[in-house]
Design a protein around this nucleic acid. Structure first.
Lengths: 154, 154
DNA sequence: ATGGATGCAAACCATTTGCAGTGTA
DNA sequence: TACACTGCAAATGGTTTGCATCCAT
């Protein structure tokens, strides 16, 4: 198992590459590349965590004190629309509960947010890597399949 | 692969069992069993989807017109605290973005909500069941390991 | 020059909380 | 009867939007 803790030079290279990729994609899609956006890209690319908007905002504000929270929101959703970043979990509209405590998995529709359960022999006992216990005590593991559901395809 | 579409009698039995289990657990933990709670239990147990609070609220209100939204919230969190239901995805405080588009997996701390990435040879190519394509077009699959992270253990 | 992007403030919406009245144990 | 629970309404906090101004192209 490999965690996302790489050495500094490799990190820096990754950051450069991501920023370059995003910059190119933004230009290609015909939207403007403002210096606020560039700074947000830099901050995001360097962040291997899974930051929320507030976190990115605070970090960017250090170098661009006038940046506003809504610009950060708009920029992140822009990258998301271009397929350059994803969000964690199903679409955020409200908290969703799961009544089923048995081992099962989820098919999440990235368009409408619906979640369907499925179970599978093959996925019953996932081979979790050894090193995982270094991160903490494992309670449970599920597969999250992301895709477009049948009714959204039409 | 088996979906959660069972025949009606089996369903009804499941619902009964869940309500009975929750009722017992609630009594055992010393909290009161009000008729609002009981109706919410019934509604939830019958719902194999992954309802949000509003959905449960609207359904319960048909039979208990005076029920309030915050009671539904409080009841669902009660069940959650007792470990009888779970929530989807990481804790919902804000939207979280994921910059890494390569195939990777998540360790989610159920206590603090932090998410760490990990990759694994063994989990690289998950054996997704055939029947899954019936649910929709699969884009991507990740393992979501839930647990308590190292710093929350202390 | 011009249309998209920004920043501000206000709107919005899901969720939580304080409190007085109510019902369970 | 006592104390937890409910319902109401108000507060909260994250997210979005309208609009005048600004800036990348």
């Amino acid at each position: 198992m490999i965690l996302n803790t790489q050495d500094a030079p490799a990190q820096e290279e990754h950051v450069q590459r991501r920023v370059a990729q995003w910059t190119a994609a933004v230009k290609a899609s015909g939207v403007k590349l403002t210096h606020q956006r560039l700074e947000i890209f830099r901050e995001l690319a360097a962040n291997l965590d899974h930051p929320d908007v507030e976190t990115v905002f605070r970090a960017v504000r250090v170098r661009v004190p006038t940046v506003s929270l809504d610009t950060v929101y708009r920029t992140l959703w822009l990258l998301h629309e271009l397929g350059l970043i994803t969000t964690l979990g199903p679409r955020r509209d409200g908290i969703r509960f799961d009544v089923n405590l048995e081992r099962h998995h989820h098919f999440v529709c990235v368009r409408c947010g619906k979640v369907r359960d499925f179970v599978s022999e093959a996925l019953c006992d996932l081979p979790l890597p050894e090193g995982l216990s270094g991160l903490g005590d494992v309670l449970d593991a599920r597969v999250e399949v992301r895709g477009v559901c049948a009714s959204c395809k039409t």
